[in-house]
Write a protein that binds this DNA or RNA. Structure first.
Lengths: 166, 166
DNA sequence: CATATATGTCAATATGACTGACATAAAATC
DNA sequence: GATTTTATGTCAGTCATATTGACATATATG
């Protein structure tokens, strides 16, 4: 059974476990964004452009509203980013067919190429971590991260907790 | 055996797996910082202050150099943050005993209290995700995140991949 | 004494976010 | 058809976080 001393130890260990999780997230996220940031800097773009390009590439024809809801930033913030991507020829807009107020966003070939370059760096890094850790660890990784999400974000990943089987 | 079609499927699934990992990290990190950011905003502070407070709390007596190396920002960036924390009475400095050029940083009681409030939000969130996912998943979570780190950051977590046993 | 190190500071700049206000076009509703 | 709501864009001002580059000071070290 647990005497007082080992309960204290248990509390310290739990605290230590949680702090390690906090720190791992911080350091891993920093590392995760470092490479794309370096590529973007050479083009005079920033991380915000990567996010926009990423989600436009992920869902071709996404509306501005949907993109705003995904990124959870103000339209004024997105506006500048989107304007630069349009001017740079990375993204094109088209009026929606059923609702012509909508501006449906798509990557150009140039945009697709940039998205590939940016995301490849992250994909390689994740792929390496997945390979080293193994399938079981990847499932755990996903479970814990999914548990950190709020309800709205979790809906994006329904049925995606387990790794797809090849 | 694998015919062409299922190989294509396999590639798509792998791509999908990796993109889900990328997105989970993005959404989870955003969620993870949301609560502390809200608390900090009320005090006229920002996320950078949380980071400084966190690592000073984590290692009382840390030097400015060590903090800079941990955060990987310029001293000019840290300077402003640290000045505000000193002025706000969250942090105190003391000259090092063996090297009096050093400014050893410590949280005041007020700083400890703020650190607790800020980190508690994150700790609760992680604790909930850990509980829901289970010990095995937590181990996997740590393995994958550790795999994302660069060599320097990984050294911070040597022997910490597995969850401590109670 | 000369040099290197730990720290601090001034100035200018960039990025990414915010709030608030206002504008326009198109859809939806009464 | 007139009104209202929605989707989007834009102007202006502000803030927080980061950068580079240059320079200053105190202390340690050879």
């Amino acid at each position: 059974m647990t005497d007082i001393k080992s309960e204290v130890d248990g509390l310290c260990r739990e605290e230590e476990d949680l702090r390690q999780g906090i720190e791992l997230l911080y350091f891993a996220y920093r590392e995760f964004t470092a490479e794309p940031d370096a590529i973007l800097a050479q083009l005079g773009l920033g991380r915000a452009h990567h996010r926009a390009i990423y989600f436009i590439g992920r869902r071709a024809g996404i509306t501005v509203s949907e993109l705003l809801a995904t990124l959870r930033i103000t339209k004024q913030s997105l506006s500048r980013v989107l304007k630069q991507l349009l001017q740079g020829g990375f993204v094109i807009q088209a009026a929606g067919a059923s609702d012509r107020r909508q501006r449906l966003l798509r990557l150009t070939d140039k945009g697709i190429e940039l998205e590939r370059r940016l995301t490849e760096a992250q994909r390689n890094r994740i792929a390496k971590a997945y390979r080293e850790a193994g399938d079981e660890a990847v499932t755990g990784f996903r479970q814990v991260l999914t548990g950190l999400l709020d309800a709205a974000d979790r809906r994006r990943f329904v049925g995606a907790t387990k790794r797809s089987q090849a």
